[in-house]
Design a protein around this nucleic acid. Sequence first.
DNA 1: AAGTGGTCTAGACCACCTT
DNA 2: AGGTGGTCTAGACCACTTG
Lengths: 233, 233
Amino acid sequence: MTDQTRLSWTDVRDEIRARILNRTYAPGDRLPRDEDIAQEFGCARTTVHRAMQDLSQTGLVERKRRGGTHVLSDPVTRATFDIPITRREVEQRGSKYDYQLIRRSVELTPLTIMARFGITSAIKMLRVKALHLADNRPYIFEDRWIDLRSTPAIMEVDLTRQSANEWLVHNKPYSRLDVRFSAMSAEGESARFLEAPEGSALFVIERTTWIGTAPITTVQAIAAPGYQLAAQS
Amino acid sequence: MTDQTRLSWTDVRDEIRARILNRTYAPGDRLPRDEDIAQEFGCARTTVHRAMQDLSQTGLVERKRRGGTHVLSDPVTRATFDIPITRREVEQRGSKYDYQLIRRSVELTPLTIMARFGITSAIKMLRVKALHLADNRPYIFEDRWIDLRSTPAIMEVDLTRQSANEWLVHNKPYSRLDVRFSAMSAEGESARFLEAPEGSALFVIERTTWIGTAPITTVQAIAAPGYQLAAQS
DNA sequence: AAGTGGTCTAGACCACCTT
DNA sequence: AGGTGGTCTAGACCACTTG
């Protein structure tokens, strides 16, 4: 009695992955051609391709056109993070969300901001400082710069009622993104607004977006003590 | 004269994405069926499917079997991070890598560690504290627990010569992974080994792996001040 | 120059979910 | 119950890259 079930690409993926874990295919090894694997499994090459595509995205193998498929010899830990809108993040935890505009001004970009955008001359941008609260406690303090050339409409938005964060997400999609995580000590504004003791460790998310090559916004979001970011899966 | 070039799935993806950015398809909207889009573009449904697959992975749309494809109304920022082996990370920056074993012991797991693994009874695990150096300066201090049931071979490894980090990556693949980022203040051991002033902000990566449901290892890696983690793309 | 992965097509069937 | 996305097949051609 033979197995009548049709092979799916996940089956192929799992078997190949198992062999890599087994060291049947050891780090650095070259795997058989897709076509040979297809023959071994008795499926179409497309199915093998789909499986390999997944393994490649996971960072387990590397594929090159003429070079074939190789097991990566220095595996990396690859994790995907979803960074939601702050309001949504707070509400999903079942907390009450509030938002306060702290300051709104038009300023010349300092060097640090120019560097983030990769531009070489200072220009005037809208700068917005704001505080997100969860259950009436400070949650995230953000210091944001918005390029008025790509996003002039932001000038008409009432930022006392709606966060720039939220307006941008709903009205200004980006094509390129840069995200960085780091840690900093609470000091001055960040300590005051987050009601954190001076010197306490804060988690910082820095996010910069462009549309094409045109800057949209860059934000430094500083989270209150205890903040933790977890990978999705 | 008509365009003779064959349409590729990236073209379809780019056009659909443009329409989403355009608000031709607004947040929350349902997109036409794959087949209709295929007809509009004059390509096979498979090609549209490939494009949609990409948009779905990027977090721009959501697809459900009978429900069709919808533009996400609360877009999330999705970023993928590669966390390489520490040695490789240091060497790729062109720095000299060194490693020191600080302590090696067999201990009962405290509650915090049991929680990370999701186990309910304390067991004895190998605990390894070590320091990674870049150009002779402290770079990352790690405190690691290794489950001897899943990874007994670690007892035979000379951890004064090779980091547990590296041995595990090359010899013990995992099937499940949990990663968390946070910030903490330098204190006690972390301050001493990283040569960081007490109270300075440190970036912390917490990584836990399992094979099936069996714990392999959990590590708290504390980076020296100034450490920054950037998204791949 | 040739081998390998990448993609496209056309058609079929399946699986899931919403109505 | 029916519509939609998910997948599989078989064959073809293309594009990259390495020997």
